[in-house]
Design a protein around this nucleic acid. Structure first.
Length: 1135
RNA sequence: GGGCAGAUGGCGGAAUUGGUAUACGCGCUAGGCUUAGGACCUAGUCCCGCAAGGGUUGGGAGUUCGAGUCUCCCUCUGCCCACCA
């Protein structure tokens, strides 16, 4: 039925099916969209859209993504630019693999079929895509370069392997994508998903964190996209602070100093103090002849200095570590621990030879040493000037103990203080905090379940009194993903570490330790100091576990209501005051004041007079301001609250220090208030639930939150209860305390990029594992590593990809030693494929390079990158990083790939919901194109709303018809040209229209461009239009509706394609109006309108306006008149 | 839990960037053409009111001669959070 009417209606109008097909074929045959790399006299313009995943069917979103930016591409071309608008396919990915497993299809066949079909669909859009530049990530000619570029990063040292958690299904024995996990269960079999550690390839994107943030400044991107990237990287500046642990055991530390050193060096005095603080004994013998030491003398001195037993920790620094090893060779009973700092067992130093090389012997009894030390730590400084890493490794091999890499204050750990050394000597927890200023308020520590110290403590079963409980907790949280841990913040869990405590380095107090999974192992140091008074998470945890809450920051708020904003330049009057919350004598109500002379709504507040305390002042103020006589003090409401504001009544800047307190009335006994007080404010009694909404300044709110026990003060303020820092600003204290108790440190939320995927359908990672040589890159001449065909796409069962089952793929010779080796079987994350595709477009067929530099230089950086908001963080960040790494390798010319970026909105179903098959609200663009034509769909999508703002627009089937109607009317117009009587009248609006569209398209405001065309059409429909004007109009329409514009252009007898025409220009002389209509306002309200000459002066305008509203102005006194030429006149009356 | 964005008629949206709120389109109402139909034509359409007039940009406050636009507080909605692409 509906179908029939469409057919009949269409037959009367233009036949979009015939027209669109005809022109698409002609354009392709004439190759009008093939883009040369350079055209003399033309600037290049690179417009990029995110290439699609070939899911098999085009949806409306694809039209929105490709056909709407096409308007900008065509416009730019008509404006004289050489425009590249390329397309390709991001064709590796999980759906193909799922289809392969489920329907026994070959993923390559499935994908290639989809690409072929989707290409025909995309062609129906009538875009100016240059198909000769098409790329596809599954093409070996493409992924050869994906592999090659990865190896460039590898060779730059940006690639490493590390254990990383993955989702693991114990039933299917496979790794799951987040997408395949619903509610913690495997999507396929419903089994509980576990977290499992696997060795994975990582790329060090964190090395680039600072540049990825700082270079955003150079980009013409919307601020919110930049902000998202900054937040994703999550740089926070803070401090690392070490908390010493008291594990209940005391040790004797014997420290052997190094060559040309002695026990009086500042670092040893400092270290001694740190250790003695914890009750340990410290012995630092002065070893003889430090400038010309001999082994015999030193070892004897060390042995003579003290006895060695199971409570001894022997520490050797530099040459002292050699002496320490020799001491251990001579002992009969083992000691507790050996620590070497900057130690070595051979004499080939990095800088120069030393005299003791001949007075010490360089062979060691490793076995005996190992037997005589129950545990061993080898601390190495990568910045060491003398001891090389090779030397450190020899020591590591001898003692069969892995190296511990430390950070020195001065190379070779020779600074006046060396926190890392002490950290490794005594058990210490290092925390990262962005608020070192709150250190005095740190009342407990929390370690992440994966914190190394927790593991260590669990291994030594005697350390924790509740090992079993802690172990159970650590294991349980290991099964939860990060996301779960972050989202389940409401109900915090954790377990106390019984038998150990930490020492707050500022207060010296002993504080408890907890393990809790609200602390993440991979962020900061995996441990936090908890300040429950000033951090919401810590507060919740502290309340749940009954932990001590200590306030150290007094809130400072600044002119918070707007009306009381501090007036610049005026001095401040300081005063101490009471802020009094008054509770009702019988009901659950509180007394609030509403000021009559200002917008202020709050509690009774008043100055504390000379010789008065806060409580006396409070009782007096309540009586004075409200008349209530019988007031009883209940309690103080925490710390003072400071407020800098403009006192509206007294008309001066005030810096008030409020003491907030709670009082209660005994009864309603009340005396008459003075007229003066009555004039100031109303007394209002409010229910508890209404107070928060009533009060309107931050300081009052803070006091109220303390009454009802909600909220934690996390803002800035003044220090209190923090010894000599009291009274300082939190900002100042932050810097000073970071230096005093720890060191300043930056941390990032961004983690390194895990590029390994245990999947078949991806680019093979071009690495080979050799038992002898370790992981080796595949040599360039062996690239690409071709993804082999397999029989079965099911994973191999141990967590490896199906490639592990292909013997011919896995078995290779090591490229370095020629021995037997195994090929890496993981494939790349598809974000790797898409991190450089825009470079390939510039030279898509090049067999010898990923893109020739000259071709890149023609186009890069991308002038405008249009895409979906969902790619704001990951894809954009990964590809920016990749580009920067290539830039550092000298492979690309720019540090940033995309000069301008815009995010597009989402198209919803007609019901406003996301389109999905299950909801039955999917619009099939092919169907709409069949009935209404591609031009209509393109224009409707452009008309639906602004393209450069992120929103969501429902597809409205009725509104599409409105656009079709517009195109119809344009079409019909060609039958009645030069017929109107007022054709000259539409010349002026035509120039306005050209101006409007020319300005709107670069701003991507296609919707208002189309509205302007509709307006113009409405005008010419009644007034008529000349053929000349019509041809201009068609050129304006061409980017939006390329087929109908081309058809009418040829219908008008024009030769050549309209799309090769130039963009119309407007003439200024048509844009000038003689008169202008202005609004007349009285007290800001529009009361009339007046038409005046455009260049009229203010006096003339005012006189004309007075005339129009003379009746309303009669008898009124006018305080002032505001005249804004070409806009309005505002008469402000005296009140 | 964190981050980002947004809220204007019955609906999608417009507003010269602090200056006449609701352009354009849809829908709706009435009339016309028509055997009929409507995805055709014409007119009307923010709300209250017969009118004069008054009100209106999620709610509340502030700054300003003037606020959809700037500031603060609140409410609600959408998007993203590392193996979907």
């Amino acid at each position: 039925m509906a179908q029939q009417s469409v057919l009949r209606w269409s037959a009367m109008q233009y036949d979009h099916k015939k027209i669109e097909k005809k022109w698409q074929e002609l354009w392709a045959r004439n190759k009008i969209y093939t883009t040369p790399d350079q055209v003399p006299g033309k600037d290049n313009f690179y417009l990029l859209v995110e290439f699609p995943y070939p899911s098999g069917n085009l949806h409306v979103g694809h039209w929105y993504a490709f056909a709407v930016p096409d308007i900008f591409a065509r416009f730019s071309r008509m404006r004289g630019k050489n425009v590249m608008y390329p397309i390709g396919f991001d064709a590796f990915g999980l759906p193909a693999e799922n289809a392969a497993i489920k329907n026994k299809l070959n993923p390559r066949d499935w994908t290639e079929k989809n690409i072929a079909y989707m290409k025909t669909q995309i062609e129906s859009m009538g875009t100016m895509f240059d198909w000769s530049r098409q790329v596809s990530t599954i093409d070996p000619a493409y992924y050869k370069w994906t592999q090659w570029l990865f190896l460039q990063l590898y060779k730059k040292g940006l690639v490493y392997r590390r254990e990383t958690a993955v989702n693991w299904c114990p039933t299917d024995k496979t790794v799951l994508a987040n997408e395949q996990v619903t509610d913690g269960k495997c999507e396929r079999c419903g089994a509980e998903v576990q977290q499992r550690q696997m060795l994975q390839w990582n790329i060090k994107i964190t090395d680039y964190a600072d540049r990825l943030i700082d270079d955003l400044e150079t980009l013409d991107w919307p601020e919110q996209i930049k902000e998202s990237q900054r937040n994703w990287i999550g740089r926070s500046e803070g401090a690392e602070i070490d908390f010493a642990l008291d594990v209940g055991e005391k040790y004797k530390f014997v420290i052997l100093h190094g060559f040309q050193s002695g026990p009086d060096r500042p670092r040893w005095i400092w270290a001694r103090q740190k250790l003695e603080e914890m009750g340990h004994e410290v012995i630092i013998p002065s070893l003889p002849n430090p400038d010309a030491p001999t082994e015999r003398e030193w070892v004897e001195a060390a042995l003579a200095a003290t006895s060695y037993d199971e409570r001894t920790v022997l520490v050797g620094h530099s040459l002292g570590s050699v002496a320490a090893l020799k001491v251990l060779e001579k002992l009969d009973t083992p000691i507790a621990r050996l620590v070497t700092v900057g130690g070595f067992v051979s004499k080939d130093f990095k800088d120069n030879p030393r005299p003791f090389e001949k007075t010490f012997t360089w062979s060691f009894d490793g076995e005996k040493i190992r037997r005589n030390a129950r545990s061993i730590t080898i601390l190495h400084d990568p910045r060491d000037y003398a001891v090389s890493e090779a030397q450190a490794r020899e020591l590591s091999d001898l003692l069969r103990t892995p190296l511990t890499i430390g950070t020195s204050n001065k190379p070779h750990f020779t600074g006046d203080t060396e926190p890392d050394v002490v950290m490794w000597l005594r058990p210490t927890i290092r925390v990262f905090t962005t608020r070192p200023d709150t250190l005095f308020g740190a009342t407990y520590l929390v370690l992440a379940p994966e914190h190394p110290w927790v593991k260590l403590a669990l291994q030594h079963k005697t350390v924790l009194k509740n090992s079993a409980e802690v172990l159970a907790y650590v294991e349980a949280s290991g099964k939860r993903s990060d996301l779960e841990r972050q989202t389940d913040q409401k109900d915090k869990t954790g377990v106390k570490l019984e038998g150990v405590s930490a020492v707050n380095p500022a207060t010296g107090e002993k504080i408890p330790l907890y393990v809790a999974d609200y602390v993440l192992g991979h962020y900061g140091t995996g441990a936090i100091m908890a300040v429950p008074a000033h951090d919401e998470r810590d507060y919740e945890f502290a309340k749940k576990f009954g932990l001590n809450i200590k306030e150290v920051v007094e809130p400072l708020v600044v002119g918070n209501g707007g009306f009381d904003a501090v007036r610049e330049g005026l001095p401040f009057t300081e005063r101490n005051a009471a802020m009094v919350v008054v509770k009702h004598w019988s009901e659950n109500k509180y007394l609030c004041l509403e000021w009559k002379k200002a917008a202020w709504k709050g509690f009774v507040c008043g100055g504390i007079e000379e010789g008065e305390d806060a409580i006396t002042a409070a009782l007096r103020e309540v009586r004075e301001e409200t008349g209530y006589k019988n007031v009883r003090f209940v309690r103080l409401l925490g710390s003072r609250i400071h407020d800098k504001f403009f006192h509206v009544v007294k008309q001066r800047n005030t810096f008030a220090h409020f003491t907030p307190l709670l009082v209660q009335l005994e009864n309603d006994d009340r005396e008459e208030m003075s007229a003066e007080e009555q004039d100031l404010h109303n007394v209002v009694w409010l229910e508890e639930k209404d107070v928060a909404n009533f009060v309107n300044s931050r300081d009052i709110s803070i006091a109220w939150e303390r009454v009802i026990g909600a909220g934690v003060y996390t803002g800035e303020g003044l220090m209190t209860d923090s010894a000599e820092f009291d009274g300082k600003s939190t900002e100042d204290a932050r810097k000073e305390m970071a230096d005093r108790y720890g060191r300043v440190k930056k941390t990032y939320k961004l983690r390194d990029w895990v590029v390994s995927r245990q999947r078949y359908w991806g680019v093979p990672i071009p690495m080979v594992h050799c038992d002898k040589c370790g992981a080796q890159p595949v040599p360039d001449e062996q690239l690409p590593v071709i993804l082999p065909e397999v029989d079965d796409y099911l994973p191999e069962g141990s967590g490896k990809s199906p490639l592990a089952k292909v013997k011919s793929f896995v078995d290779v010779v090591c490229p370095t030693c020629g021995g037997a080796a195994a090929r890496e079987t993981d494939t790349f994350d598809t974000f790797v494929d898409s991190s450089w595709y825009f470079l390939r477009y510039t030279d898509s067929q090049n067999p010898a390079e990923f893109a020739a530099r000259a071709k890149q230089d023609s186009w890069m950086p991308v002038d405008l990158y249009s895409g979906g908001a969902e790619h704001t963080t990951m894809h954009l960040l990964y590809s920016r990083f990749w580009h920067k790494a290539l830039f550092d390798c000298g492979l690309v010319a720019n540090a940033e790939p995309y000069a301008r970026r815009m995010n597009r909105s989402l198209i919803m179903g007609p019901d406003g919901q996301k389109m999905s098959k299950s909801k039955g609200n999917v619009i099939d663009p092919d169907e709409v194109v069949a009935t209404l034509g591609a031009d209509t769909v393109r224009m409707y999508l452009a008309f639906i709303g602004p393209y450069n703002e992120v929103s969501s627009y429902p597809w409205n089937p009725d509104a599409v018809v409105g656009v079709r109607r517009f195109i119809e009317r344009v079409w019909k117009l060609h039958l009645k040209l030069d017929q109107g009587k007022n054709i000259d009248q539409v010349e002026k609006p035509l120039h306005f229209l050209i101006k409007k569209i020319t300005e709107d398209i670069p701003k991507l405001k296609f919707n208002t461009s189309i509205a302007a065309m509709m307006n113009y059409l409405n005008e010419v429909d009644t007034k008529g239009i000349s053929k000349k004007q019509y041809l201009v109009f068609l050129r304006l329409l061409a980017p939006f509706a390329p087929h109908i514009a081309e058809e009418l252009w040829s219908e008008m007898g024009q030769t050549g394609s309209i799309h090769l025409e130039s963009w119309p220009t407007y003439e200024e002389r048509y844009l000038i109006d003689d008169t202008v209509s202005m609004a007349i306002q009285i007290d800001g309200k529009t009361r009339g309108e007046v038409s005046v000459a455009t260049d009229a002066d203010k006096e003339t305008i005012e006189a004309a306006a007075r005339e129009v509203v003379s009746a309303r102005l009669e008898g009124q006194k006018i305080a002032r008149v505001i005249v804004v030429p070409k806009r309005l006149v505002n008469f402000v009356l005296e009140n």
